[in-house]
Design a binder for these strands. Sequence first.
DNA 1: CGGCATCTTGAAAGAATTCAAGGCTTGTGG
DNA 2: CCACAAGCCTTGAATTCTTTCAAGATGCCG
Lengths: 249, 249
Amino acid sequence: MEFQNNLPRRQPDAADCAQCFMETRCWPESTPRSGSVEVHREPVLRRGQSLWRQGEAYRGLFLLRSGCIKIYQHSSQGEEQVLQFALTGDLLGLEAMTAGSSDSHAVALTDAMVCRLRWPAVDADATQVAHVERRLLQRASSLLRQRARAARATEPTAALLAFLQDFARRSGVHEARVAEDQRKLRLPMGRLEIGQYLGYAEETICRSFHRLQEQGLATVAGRTIVLRGPAVPPTTAASEPMLRVAAVS
Amino acid sequence: MEFQNNLPRRQPDAADCAQCFMETRCWPESTPRSGSVEVHREPVLRRGQSLWRQGEAYRGLFLLRSGCIKIYQHSSQGEEQVLQFALTGDLLGLEAMTAGSSDSHAVALTDAMVCRLRWPAVDADATQVAHVERRLLQRASSLLRQRARAARATEPTAALLAFLQDFARRSGVHEARVAEDQRKLRLPMGRLEIGQYLGYAEETICRSFHRLQEQGLATVAGRTIVLRGPAVPPTTAASEPMLRVAAVS
DNA sequence: CGGCATCTTGAAAGAATTCAAGGCTTGTGG
DNA sequence: CCACAAGCCTTGAATTCTTTCAAGATGCCG
């Protein structure tokens, strides 16, 4: 049985870590100065309740004070993929920071208490003046999403395709592309290395390249690849279906 | 052929992103205010050269201005595991931030230019007053290392063992443990969920639990697990050792 | 105490890995 | 500019492992 209901979220209380009795759980070493961040105590989460769901707007980062929260998402094939088992003191929701809305779910496996970190309205034009630290956090967010995407798909060919599309997008092949749905790229890494990244043997990657060509999804000539089909939107930053997700929200 | 030599590292030049001609590569949206971070231009990396090696002291974060850099590490079985293919604008070395020294290698797949980000000596007592943002970055670092560890090992049983040890350490079973090498834990998640996290089928996890018990590495009774053998030192692992890092710098 | 979800185990089927060998690309040197 | 050598890529076949399907056992919660 699963609790699908979310309690109507009460207005969370502003909090000060330095005065919190659970301070040492979130900050074992020493409590940082709060800087420009607001900390809000969230209502207690009961086992089975969701902290956020797929498609919900980003509400900030969370810090888990106690309990265990599972973060998971649905892969393109509809399978559930668990991204993180968060325990006391862990940071949650970083993946969603760079996406407009979260493409993952967060559900409590035990009763749990969380605090929410929020940057005040400076956000609007924050891109102009934000701390380096904050921008780096966003990069970290991207890294986590990348890693999540690299998580082994059910099929090696699908994993390879996702990898190539990600690589094309991040290479900024947008400008250099010949046609709308034809992106040419030159890979700086070998088949073996791609395999070591995706978790497959070198030969499996070879055969997957072959299969991509058979299916007309790409033209393969050594390390020169031409991808066919629509480019992956950089907005939501992921392999495929996030645009859809964002649109839904 | 591979270039194993590292040029003796010249004293890098202090730099200001706002004045850099490649500014838009690192900061496509807008250049952040530098805050308390020093930016240093590093010498150009030639293809095959290393930016850092396993065991080297943490030198700060890097921002890739151009080229492609591969970050990889050796798994326990001696296999190479690629963690990231960094492209222009990507952040490098975040995993190493929370470890005293990096347990990964970084090698240039193409000629590459990087800048190094360094927090000045405030570090010494920074644990007292560090920005929340900076502390969160360290959490992000931990997350990345966690994810790296969850990367599929060659054997499901080894992956499960690593998962359990990580869980035990992060649960803080240190205090509650009965003997030095006997840690009892109660898992809040099911076999299926562990499988969804590690990338294996539910039944495979079951059989791996069985195998762990056979090998005397653990006692399994439903969700109650007793781990035998020495605990995983948190040093190389993840969550805590930030204090040390700050002290080193 | 009963019911349902979770866990466990077995056997068959399916996939990736491994091993092996040949072809191709790339960079080097004549 | 061409030839050579080294490394990389590709392909085939056998093996090994995981997955899948199915059914029974166990444990947990109401």
